[in-house]
Amino acid sequence: MTRRIGFGALAGLVLAALPASAQDAPSFFDGADPDFEVAEGQYWLYPTFGGKTLVAWHSLDMQKWEKGPVLLDHGMIPWIGDDHAPEHRLWAPDMVRANGRYYFYYSIGPQNPTPSRIGVATCDGPAGPCKDSGKPLVNDGGHGFEAIDPAVFTDPRSGRSYLYAGGSAGATLRVWQLKPDMVSIDHEVKVKTPEHFTEGSFMFERKGTYYLSYSSGNFRDTTYSVHYATASSPVGPWKYRGAILVSDAKYKGPGHHAFLRDPKDGRWYIAYHRWEGQPHDGPYTGSRRVAITSVTFGKDGSILPIRMD
């Protein structure tokens, strides 16, 4: 079982040859909540857009991106109407490789009047085709918790896989250990919600330290930002380390992100969404844009503040 797609030994990558401008913060396309992976010699982004379908975008060089086929739509989820809500939306997907297959986790709403849920589909490859598991993976929203924003991490030390989810109005983080089949819950692991947590959690490990990053603030204004905490295990206890990606004079409300370590040269990157062309502090309307920025670490393992330009 591998941790995430982006950590396998994959050939054909050309990131080291990118010009400096491409290693800063190119903006690619409308979308939000991107998952960021490497598979089959290409880079992959899995964003939210529109709420009706979820698709993969792929690139050889992080500059020219091509939109792939639909991975999931409403008609492919047999349990979508079980809550009898008048309409539904799909968002915040996460693609993970394990067991020689690909597993596609996603949020499905509304969050009101019925609780949101988290589903999972099994895919033949990073561009699908995908088949839903046939039932919700997490279906216990409410009581201060919203079942949104799934992120799955496989611990390279223990081989255990964990699902991180939750946020928004409840601003509550929950963690579950998955069964080896990756489509079933083994048990919940009780964790403490870290400081300044709102939503959009992400977990990665570097040099024995576990990094839990997440979005804080309101996604429609300049308060939206990325913060992080560290721990000696994938389930805490967390030590809050501060904000690392915040609004500046040009780009506003960066957040809901994913980190990627290039398996060829070891460089780190963050994919995230932001508002562009917004001269005020919000609230914003319209479409957000997906962008990628390089990440550096201090000698003490801290994530240095990330510049968007």
Rank of each mutant, 00 (worst) to 15 (best):
M95N: 07
N139C: 02
K192A: 10
V175S: 00
P34I: 03
R289Y: 07
A151T: 10
E146V: 13
L178M: 08
P180D: 04
K250L: 10
C130H: 03
G167P: 14
G200M: 05
F197S: 00
I270L: 15
F197H: 03
Y102D: 05
P129W: 01
P129F: 07
H74S: 11
S232F: 03
N218T: 10
A231N: 00
F29P: 12
P19H: 06
W91S: 08
V226E: 01
P19M: 06
F7K: 04
F145L: 13
F153D: 00
G51E: 02
F219P: 02
S27V: 15
T193F: 12
L15C: 11
S225E: 14
A32I: 12
K192L: 09
A151S: 11
I303Y: 04
P113V: 09
L137Y: 13
R289N: 09
L260C: 06
A39Q: 11
Y214V: 02
P93C: 07
W44I: 08
L15Q: 13
E276W: 11
R97G: 15
L260V: 13
S21I: 01
R3S: 07
G236Y: 04
G142T: 12
T209E: 01
G75W: 10
G208L: 03
Y224L: 02
D82W: 14
R4K: 11
V120H: 01
P47N: 07
P283F: 14
S201R: 05
Y105N: 03
R206L: 05
K179L: 09
W268E: 02
M203S: 01
S302D: 11
L15F: 12
A121K: 03
V191K: 00
R288M: 06
P126C: 10
H187I: 06
N99Q: 06
A121I: 13
